[in-house]
Every structure is written in structure tokens, then in C-alpha cells.
Design a protein around this nucleic acid. Sequence first.
DNA 1: CCAGTTTGGTCAGTAACATTGACGCATCAG
DNA 2: CTGATGCGTCAATGTTACTGACCAAACTGG
Lengths: 184, 184
Amino acid sequence: MPAKSSAQIADVPERSSLAAGRNLLFLREEELRLAQDLLFFGYRDFTAGADEILVELGMGRAHHRVLHFVGRRPGITVGDLLGILAITKQSLGRVLQPLVEDGYVTQTPGRNDRRQRLLTLTEKGAALERRLFDRQRETVMRAYREAGPVAVEGFRRVMRGLMGDQARDACDAIEAPPAQGLAR
Amino acid sequence: MPAKSSAQIADVPERSSLAAGRNLLFLREEELRLAQDLLFFGYRDFTAGADEILVELGMGRAHHRVLHFVGRRPGITVGDLLGILAITKQSLGRVLQPLVEDGYVTQTPGRNDRRQRLLTLTEKGAALERRLFDRQRETVMRAYREAGPVAVEGFRRVMRGLMGDQARDACDAIEAPPAQGLAR
DNA sequence: CCAGTTTGGTCAGTAACATTGACGCATCAG
DNA sequence: CTGATGCGTCAATGTTACTGACCAAACTGG
């Protein structure tokens, strides 16, 4: 693989530090453009498998996201889910409502706060989520296996770095023990 | 950071290899679900900065993708661009046409094959692409800097692994010397 | 208990991005 | 000349998202 240049430039003799700086800048630019390409292609193909299943059911990626995060945090409130997805109430409603009507998700009033409608996957919902998950599992497992554990750790670090503070908090909250509420 | 478990499970004494297998499976599942989260949040925030600029101009992410790939491969044909983006002619036309009309992209007939309309960024187009690029550069540079070069290499390997064969070819073709045509 | 906030749902309108199928035109290759 | 290719365009459709406004139920502090 030829295009493996990471961060060494100084060993190439340059006429001036200015030229070296330009070269550095160029390499950085190439690196970043490569990152753009990788994220575009990688993300697209990562979601492609699940998308195929979803279209059969007349759903979209948004439905998958709801199933995914409700599955990760059973009993999540609508508000917390909105915070995670960072979409509007209306946008969520449009996908959540059909999911409830079709028996993929149940809404139960909160014990402490009965205004809340705690969201949980039904068996049917969990089964669909698992089906979608298994499809993506193949893709990710293959990538992880080929890349190796060190690369996986690096992948995680970079992806976390790409997130804004808000998303990082939300991500941490999902990963955290499901007892206490999400970051608010 | 507590949730750093990567791939060690055997050190925890288990009652049976079956239980160990279940545990392994569980960890793998958690790993993969984490990957889903990371990709969702990371990709979203990666594109968020550029999206802000685009809405001001009445454009969307699709316009950015065209600017990006035309910028990477000046003189690309419409067909090759379609192959890279993996969208339909109509979808491309809807974004490409305004870009041409508004003077971001020029179409010039191919020298060898005059049916082709080779796409190139105008100065205006290159300026916008650079503006969008600079916005994403901040995000990626920060993530790269915080994660370190080893992590960056790992990130690249995993992202490449997520791609399907077709996307990997397309990605390689973009990275390759811009002389010969894209993989067809 | 009442006022004000919070939680959630819902109305209507708009827009970006993508799809499918069909057709036309110019051009290239045999 | 014929067929295939590259490109553009017609029309209809669907998903995902946005905005602003409004309402009902339930919690919270005084």
C-alpha cells in the first residue's frame, strides 16, 4: 500500500522552511481529504445493509435509529431520545408513531412522572432491531477483524474526537450503566 | 474511563466454556453496538459544520459531495461521478444543474469523446469547496490530534474495512494518480 | 390550591435528497 | 447504417428533516 504517509515530512530535504511548511500543509490537506472520503464511503456502506431490510418494511434509517437507541436504553423518555437524536419533536413523532402503532415500541407512563412516556421495545421491536443489528454486525465484524484490535481502538478514539461535546456526553450516557438518567 | 474493554475475556474465570462463549458474544455485541453509536454521532458531527454553511447558500450535503469529488478529480465525467456517489442520474442532475447554473462547476466536452461533459470546479466553486473543507478540517484535525497518529492509522483501516468492494475501488481510484480513469 | 413550567403530542407548511420509469438527443464504434 | 453509450429531462413518489404554533396533562414551588 503506497498511500501510507502519516506524519513524516522533515526527512525530505526542502529548500526552505517555508517550502517545508507548504509540504506539511499539503500532506495534512491530503490526509483530511482522505478522511472525508473514508467517512463518506464507510458510513454509507455501514448503513447500506440495514437500509435494505428497512425498505422492505417501508421504514427508513430514522426508524432504525429509534429502535437502536430505545433498545440500548429501555424505558428512555421521549425527551432524552430527542436529545440523543438531535431532531425535532415532530420529526421524531413521524417515525415513532408508526412504530408504536405497528407494535414495535410500547409507551408506558413514567412511575415518578406520569407525563413521561417511557419507550421500550416490544418483542417484535427487539426482533427487528436484532435483525438489523445482525446485518450491520457482519460489516463491522469484518472490518474489525481485518483491521485488528489496535486499529479498532484507534478508530474509536478518532470517532469520539469527531463528536461535539454534546454528542460525546450523549454517547457516554448511553454507554453508562442504565440506572441513572441521561445527561441533561 | 471505565468502558475501555477491548478483547480480553478469558482472564475472567467462567464456569464453563459455554458461559465463556456467551460472555464473549456479549462483549462482541457491546463492542458492535458501541461502533454503531460512534458512527452515528461521529458522522453526524463531522458533517454538521459544513452543513451550516450549506444551508446559508440554499444547498445541501449532496452539493458538497459533488464539489468535493469534482474538486478531487477535476475533469471527472458525469458517469464516473455517478459511480462514486452511487445515486441516480436524476438525483445528481438535481444538484449538479444548479451548481453549473450558479457558476460553481463547468462542463466541458470531452476531447476524446464529445458526448462526455467533463466536470471541473470554477474559481467560485473551488472557493466554496475550500470554505467547506476548512470547516471540516477543524473537526478532523482536532480529532486526529487528540487521538494520535497510531489511532489515525487504525481509524483509516477500520473505515476502509467498512466499505464494500465497490466503494473501496472507488476510493482507491480517487486517491490514485488523477491520470487514468476511475475503476469501471 | 394556583400559577408557571415541563413533557409530550399534534396541526400545517416547506424543503433537501433520493427513488423509479420512460424518453430524447448526440455521439461513438463496428 | 445500426446499435450501444453518455447525458439530460420529463413526471410522480417517498423519506427525513425543518419551522411555528398550539394544546393537554402533569409536575413544582409558593
